[in-house]
Deep mutational scan, measured.
Amino acid sequence: MVYKIRDKETGKVYEVTIDEETNEITVYDVKTGKPVKTVNMTIEELKEAGYEVEPV
């Protein structure tokens, strides 16, 4: 599923895909559409880390 996340401190917005089964999150560069990095976190962990998470 695709989400937009926003860093509450910097205001930067990222587009991510989240595999609900493995909790693998792939972060994409919004301008190029290319993957930047992959992390292993849940949506709740993202929120605790200071991100706003919205489904696209």
Rank of each mutant, 00 (worst) to 15 (best):
V36H: 05
E45S: 08
K12P: 00
D19A: 05
N23F: 07
D19E: 05
E9C: 15
V13M: 07
Y3C: 09
P35W: 14
T32D: 07
T22R: 14
T17K: 09
R6K: 11
E48L: 13
E9T: 14
N40T: 12
A49F: 10
E44H: 10
E54A: 07
K31W: 13
E44R: 10
R6Y: 11
P35S: 07
E52H: 08
K47W: 10
V16H: 00
L46H: 00
V36R: 04
T32M: 04
E54P: 03
E52C: 05
Y14T: 01
K37H: 12
I5F: 05
K47A: 10
G33W: 07
K31H: 14
P55M: 12
M1Q: 12
K34D: 08
E45V: 05
N40Q: 13
T17E: 06
E9N: 12
E9A: 14
V2T: 11
E15N: 15
G50M: 05
E44P: 06
N23K: 10
E21H: 11
K4P: 00
E54L: 14
T10M: 02
P55N: 09
Y3K: 02
T26C: 06
Y51R: 01
N40R: 14
T42C: 02
Y51D: 01
E15S: 13
K31E: 15
K37I: 13
V16S: 01
D19K: 07
E20L: 14
A49Q: 11
V2K: 15
D7I: 03
E24N: 09
R6C: 09
V53A: 04
L46C: 05
D29G: 02
I5D: 00
M1E: 07
T38A: 05
P55G: 09
K8Y: 06
K37V: 13
E52T: 07
L46I: 09
N23L: 07
V13S: 06
V56Q: 08
T10Y: 02
I5T: 01
I18K: 02
E45Q: 13
I25G: 02
E44Y: 09
I43E: 02
V30T: 12
E21C: 13
V16N: 00
V27K: 01
N23A: 07
T17H: 13
Y28Q: 02
T32W: 05
V27L: 15
E52F: 07
T26K: 08
D19P: 00
Y51H: 03
L46D: 00
K8T: 08
E21N: 12
V30W: 14
V16Y: 03
V56F: 12
I43R: 04
K12T: 12
V30S: 13
E54T: 09
T32F: 03
E9R: 14
N40P: 06
E48I: 10
M41P: 01
V36C: 15
P35Q: 08
A49E: 08
E45C: 08
E54V: 10
V27S: 03
V39P: 04
I43L: 13
K34Q: 10
Y28M: 08
V53M: 07
Y3R: 04
Y3M: 11
V27H: 04
V56G: 08
N23D: 07
R6N: 02
D29N: 06
V30L: 09
E48S: 12
E45A: 10
K8F: 05
T42K: 06
E20S: 12
K12G: 05
V13I: 11
N23I: 04
Y28I: 08
I5E: 00
Y14W: 13
E15K: 13
K4R: 15
K47M: 13
V27W: 15
D19R: 07
G11A: 02
V39D: 03
I43K: 04
M41N: 03
K12E: 12
I25P: 00
K47H: 07
V36M: 11
T17A: 07
Y14N: 01
V16L: 11
N40W: 14
P55S: 12
E24F: 12
T32N: 07
A49C: 15
D19S: 08
V2E: 05
T22K: 15
V13R: 03
